[in-house]
Amino acid sequence: MTLLETRNLSGGYRALTIFSDVNLTIEPNTITGILGPNGAGKTTLLKTLAGLLKAQSGTIRLDGNDVMPLSAHDRARHGIALVPEGRQIFQGLTVKENLGIPRSASRFSAVEFDRRFEEILTIFPRLRERLGQLGGGLSGGEQQMLAIGRALLLDPKVLMLDEPTQGLAPIMVSQVLSSLEALRGRFSMLIVEQNRDFLDRLSNSKFVFRGGKLEQTT
């Protein structure tokens, strides 16, 4: 059964339409990649799926249920997680506090949450070393790990990543790549990237965003 499905989805800011008629189908436990230049509408699409922006028309279904009426925080509770562009970690909160934010919205039970918390620190050992540090003091790569770890604690059905390699040193890019590869098959991922190599390594299916339209590619 299809996990996430959009039909004729259009979105943008107020009167400005950035993308239109996007039909995207995401099957469970797959990795979908979207390529495209800056300004093509990739970020706008992800924000619309996550509920930060209101769709202008069309539908979004998760497990066959319409999620359009849900606000962003409700979609997060139902398993749509977005790791936003630029990481957006809370700089004034410690690493531990950052990871604790999704606790009450998580689909995990309280006991399960604590177990997964440990697991995240195993996947990203650098975070364990820096648990008490402020988020603002982390390097770009560590911030990306924190942002991904934080979203994983929601227990997502689909994890959306907006340019996860942007601004990262190459060594960090390969670390992010291998940790995402390790998570393959647990849930679905939707990754937006300009880095084609990165997507080639990960994705089952790939799309290109051109002029606000989505096209399948190989």
Partner: peptide
């Protein structure tokens, strides 16, 4: 407290908090 932590998260970056399931 967890609630206070959420308030600080909202204060710093409401969108990011919303994405983590916090009702801003």
């Amino acid at each position: 407290t967890p609630l206070g932590r959420k308030l600080r998260a909202v204060a710093e970056n409401p969108d990011a908090a919303e994405l983590l399931g916090v009702n801003v």
